[in-house]
Amino acid sequence: MSKILVIGAAGQLGQCLKTVAAKRGIDEIVFPTEQEANILNKELLSQLLEREQPAFVINCAAYTAVDKAEDEVELCKAINETGALNLAEACLNAAATLIHVSTDFVFEGNEVKLLKEDDVANPINVYGQTKLDGELVLAKMLPQHYIIRTSWLYSEYANNFVKTMLKLGAERDELNIIADQVGTPTYAIDLANAIFDVIAVNNNQYGTYHYSNEGVTSWYDFATAIFAISDTTVKVNPIPGALYPTKAKRPAFSVMDKSKIKSTFNISIPYWRDSLVECIAKLKN
């Protein structure tokens, strides 16, 4: 496999890429620190790419604190839009292909239908808007790119919904979980495998793709599954999102159609609950 450079290596997906690379025997891969690969520092980026000469760059660096973004608009915009543009420019100059990770939050999510890559994106929060703006500037700057939108990412690494639920479930007798926001959880290990599959196929079918695990669930059903699989005894109450107001609005329905990535790269995608079983088993060990 060609040489790969991972930006945002310390984050959840970055750590999953490291784990999967080791498992798949991918050794031509570099995981620079945030100091070595700050996407807001153009000069640093171009020096890094010049030195490493990667064929592929995977961008996992993002501002992802959805509610906080409503207050930190400039910082969120800098990382998710300007950072993406800086990286695209560095890749263009170094003749590298960029794989950029984006989000289902680029969609409004106000109707119940599978979201396709070319459906109109209409974000309803700052985070979603900056991620969409990042996609647009990147695509305009750099023809050789793959944008992979994902959703509800979790793993054994970093902070995420699964780890939070396991912690809260052990501490409390009862939890209220939103039941009217529907999407698909994605095990970041599965996403990491899919990214490496895209690189391995290397068919130049550039553009935007959707990847999450298979299936559909609500946050309430997701939490219930986490507790059932982990043998955690806690009462879970389904509540409407209106009873748990957050600073940022969230899509009510953001289930993505994955048929494009499956057919283009011959990728098979695990069902969300099967992957959750795998993750919880690893967390228990």
Score class of each variant (00 low, 15 high):
Ser268Met: 09
Met141Asn: 05
Leu92Thr: 00
Cys76His: 01
Gln144Lys: 15
Gly207Ser: 09
Gln129His: 08
Leu115Cys: 03
Glu28Thr: 06
Leu283Glu: 15
Ala194Asn: 02
Leu191Arg: 03
Leu153Lys: 00
Ala179Gln: 11
Thr217Arg: 01
Leu49Val: 05
Ala78Tyr: 06
Asp119Gln: 06
Ala78Met: 07
Ala69Gly: 09
Leu49Ser: 00
Ala281Gln: 12
Leu136Ser: 02
Lys262Ala: 14
Trp272Val: 01
Ala88Trp: 01
Gly83Leu: 06
Val236Gln: 05
Gln205Arg: 15
Gly25Glu: 12
Thr82Val: 08
Asn204Ala: 15
Leu5His: 01
Lys131His: 07
Asn86Cys: 05
Tyr220His: 12
Ala9Gly: 04
Lys282Tyr: 07
Asp133Gln: 11
Ser268Phe: 06
Thr33Trp: 14
Ala158Lys: 12
Gly241Asn: 13
Ala200Tyr: 02
Leu75Trp: 10
Asn59Glu: 11
Val30Gln: 04
Glu117Leu: 11
Tyr271Glu: 14
Asn285Trp: 04
Leu168Gln: 10
Ile178Ser: 03
Phe105Met: 10
Glu50Gln: 11
Thr186Lys: 02
Phe31Ser: 01
Thr97Met: 06
Glu34Asp: 14
Phe253Ala: 00
Gln205Pro: 03
Asn122His: 12
Ser218Asp: 08
Ser155Pro: 08
Arg149Asn: 03
Glu28Arg: 13
Leu175Trp: 07
Gly215Lys: 01
Ile26Ser: 00
Cys279Gln: 07
Gln205Leu: 15
Val73Ile: 13
Lys77Glu: 15
Val198Gly: 04
Asn93Cys: 10
Asp190Phe: 06
Val182Gln: 04
Val66Cys: 11
Gln144Asp: 12
Val162Asp: 01
Glu50Cys: 04
Lys23His: 09
Lys68Gly: 04
Glu108Asp: 09
Cys16Glu: 14
Ala228Lys: 05
Lys18Arg: 15
Trp219Pro: 00
Asp71Phe: 07
Asn204Asp: 13
Asp173Val: 03
Phe265Met: 08
Ile4Asn: 02
Ala84Met: 05
Phe107Pro: 00
Leu138Val: 09
Ser230Met: 08
Glu74Phe: 11
Asn237Tyr: 14
Ala188Met: 09
Asp173Arg: 08
Ala158Phe: 07
Pro54Met: 09
Glu52Lys: 02
Ile261Ser: 05
Ala188Gln: 01
Gln47Asn: 12
Asp27Tyr: 05
Thr130Gln: 04
Thr130Ser: 14
Phe265Trp: 14
Leu40Thr: 11
Ile239Asp: 05
Ile124Gln: 03
Tyr206Ile: 10
Leu283Cys: 10
Ile4Ala: 01
Met256Gly: 02
Leu191Pro: 01
His100Ser: 12
Asn266His: 09
Arg273Val: 10
Leu98Lys: 03
Met165Leu: 15
Pro54Glu: 01
Ala179Cys: 11
Gln35Cys: 05
Thr217Ala: 03
